[in-house]
Every structure is written in structure tokens, then in C-alpha cells.
């Protein structure tokens, strides 16, 4: 896993390069929700996208899938899927990629299933919508999918309200897998579920990944879930990538002050306090408003390490030299190594 951040290096399934997305707001201002976001997803790999609410995780997925709402525009950057630039495709060609090559489980979608349609029928409709097969074949496919995600066949004809949260999320996964994609985006798939059900769903994702060789991009704000699932982590702050690298390095040698604080503020069962009643670390302040971003590093107003230069110059991405050549990049002035060639 050397520096795979070069387009068309042949390895990556998906590469986002310098992705910049803006939203036009009702008050005529423009909010830059993403700026210069780059990352790679290798086949069969799990990439985690973490950060506080509003940092642009969902927007990243929507930009890559080209499903932005009408007030959103990708203003710069590229997205390569198997070397093809997705942003250059017509909407029709893009549609051919969606669901067949990459599918998405939308944030909160499990609470938005149609309440008056049977689960099985809803999955079948999703399949038929993509014109892959006839009705009978689609019916068989539904059975396959339900078995894959562990929903007993007898529950195919039940309605969403008869399903618990975990079962509904399984149904959503089945729906996303309908067209056998190579890449699955899962936006906060376990946020509303409690730990045991979360563990079941994560386990299911792992199993499916092993069985189908699927690559997964997992969006979550739960650092524990990312640590459990992901090979590579993208830590986002205010629409930019703060730290990007292999999960082992990011968790054990975090370089960006934001990542450091985020990890310290995570109440971790396995790192119980040495003395009782020790306070957790916190990050004072709030994330920046996107239509009024601070100059320089976006984290500088909240950063405990910030220097004069931080409020003036936007830090570039820097490779953390680990010797082993394992991927680890940070955008922070504290690291002054050579900038990565673009």
C-alpha cells in the first residue's frame, strides 16, 4: 500500500481527487461544503469517513455518486471509477454506474421505507427499476438477497413496521446489493441502533464483504465503529480532509490535533480512566459555518496547538514519513515536510 494517490494507477477502484462541492444557499451566499477532498478506495477494502456532524461526510458520498441536491455543484476535482472519470459522464451513463457498480445506503433510509409496501416487494421494485431482469428473475433475486442478509424467508411479506431497526437496516443492505455492486457506500448505517444490533449489522457487512469481495465506504461519527471495520480512515473537518491514512497509524499515531482530540474525547471502554472521575478531553468551540470559514486552517480557532501561521495560511497535505511507506497524510502546519506533489 504505497502512495496510491495517483489517478489511474490501476489499483484503486475509486479515487476522488481534489473534490470541491458548493451549495447555493437561500440567502444568496455560497457554502463550500467540500474542498480539495482526495482519497482512494481499493478493491475489497473498507474506508471509513469520520468527523463531526456537518463536516461533509454525506456530501462527499453524494458528490461521488452525483446525487447532489439541485442547489449543490461540484466545482472542481475528479472522481475516477476503475480509471473512468465519472464527472465527465453524461447523466445517462452515470446512471449505468449507479447501483451496478456502486450502491449507497442513505443516511436514515431505514426509517424511510414505504410503510404500506411489503419489504420483499420494495426490494423487488428496486431491482426492476434498474431494468436488469424480468419479474420472475427479480423475485428469485429477492430471495437470494434476503438469505444473504439473514432475513428469514417467512418475513419477506411483512411490512416495515413489523421489522425492528436492525431488520430494516438488513433490508436496506439487501436493496443496495440488488445489482451486485463492487462498491458500497453506507451512510451512518448503525447510528440509530443499539450496540448489540450494531454489532450484528457490522458483522453482516464484514461477511458480505468477504463473500462478494465488496469495497465499502463507511460513513460514521463513531470512532469505535471505524476502528472495528476499516483499513483506511479519512478524518474530515469543515469540508476538508484533516488526516488520511491506514487505520492503525491514524489511531495509534494521530498527527493532526483534531484527530488527537477526537480520539481523546471518545469514551472508550477499553481505556478506562486511571483514576476515577477523570474528565474526558473536549474540543472547545463549534465547527465552522461553511459560508463564513475562518482564514488559514479551518481548525485553527479551536486548535490547542495553533500558531500564528495557522490563522493565515491554509496548510497543505503532508506525507507522514513512517519508513514503511504506509499511507498517512496530514494537513497541519505542525508537520513541515515536503508537500505532496499534486
Amino acid at each position: 500500500m504505497t502512495d496510491a494517490l495517483r489517478p489511474g494507477s490501476g489499483q484503486a477502484l475509486l479515487s476522488a481527487r481534489h473534490l470541491t462541492t458548493e451549495f447555493h444557499l437561500a440567502d444568496k451566499t455560497v457554502a463550500r461544503a467540500l474542498e480539495d477532498v482526495s482519497f482512494d478506495v481499493l478493491p475489497g477494502q473498507t474506508v471509513g469517513l469520520v468527523g463531526e456532524s456537518g463536516c461533509g461526510k454525506t456530501t462527499t458520498l453524494m458528490s461521488v455518486m452525483r446525487l447532489l441536491p439541485s442547489n449543490g455543484r461540484i466545482t472542481a476535482g475528479n472522481v475516477y471509477f476503475n480509471g473512468n472519470d465519472l464527472l465527465a459522464l453524461s447523466e445517462r451513463d452515470m446512471r449505468a454506474h449507479r447501483w451496478k457498480d456502486m450502491a449507497i445506503i442513505f443516511q436514515g433510509a431505514m426509517n424511510a421505507l414505504n410503510p404500506v409496501l411489503r419489504i420483499g416487494d420494495q426490494i423487488r421494485e428496486a431491482i426492476l427499476l434498474h431494468d436488469l431482469m424480468d419479474r420472475a428473475a427479480a423475485d428469485r433475486r429477492v430471495d437470494e438477497l434476503l438469505e444473504l442478509v439473514g432475513i428469514p424467508r417467512g418475513r419477506r411479506d411483512q411490512y416495515p413496521h413489523q421489522y425492528s431497526g436492525g431488520m430494516r437496516q438488513r433490508a436496506m443492505i439487501a436493496m443496495a446489493l440488488a445489482c451486485s455492486p463492487d462498491l458500497l457506500f453506507a451512510d451512518e448505517p448503525t447510528t440509530a441502533l443499539d450496540v448489540m444490533i450494531q454489532a450484528q449489522v457490522l458483522e453482516l457487512l464484514k461477511e458480505i464483504q468477504k463473500k462478494l469481495g465488496l469495497a465499502i465506504v463507511l460513513v460514521t461519527h463513531d470512532l469505535g465503529v471505524v476502528a472495528e471495520m476499516c483499513d483506511t480512515v479519512v478524518v474530515m473537518y469543515g469540508g476538508k480532509v484533516a488526516e488520511y491514512g491506514s487505520a492503525e497509524l491514524v489511531y495509534n499515531q494521530p498527527q493532526h490535533p483534531y484527530t488527537q482530540r477526537l480520539l481523546e474525547s471518545f469514551p472508550d471502554l477499553n481505556r478506562p480512566p486511571d483514576s476515577a472521575n477523570r474528565d474526558l478531553a473536549t474540543i472547545p468551540g463549534t465547527p465552522p459555518r461553511l459560508n463564513a470559514l475562518p482564514p488559514g486552517c479551518r481548525f485553527s480557532p479551536r486548535c490547542h496547538m495553533s500558531m500564528d501561521v495557522c490563522a493565515q495560511v491554509t496548510p497543505g497535505k503532508v506525507n507522514v514519513s513512517t519508513g514503511s511507506g504506509v499511507l498517512h497524510q496530514v494537513a497541519c502546519h505542525l508537520l513541515n515536510e515536503q508537500e505532496i506533489n499534486k
Binding site: 454525506t58 452525483r66 436514515g108 426509517n111 427499476l129 451512518e188
Partner: peptide, 18 residues
Amino acid sequence: HHLEDGQSMIAVSGKRSE
């Protein structure tokens, strides 16, 4: 609530995809 609401995103996908 931000962690729960997916409605807007669903509407988007419904409108844009297929």
C-alpha cells in the same frame, strides 16, 4: 435531528436517480 433525518437525502435520491 441531524443523526436521524434522512428524509431530505431520500427525496434527493428519489428525484435524481431514475
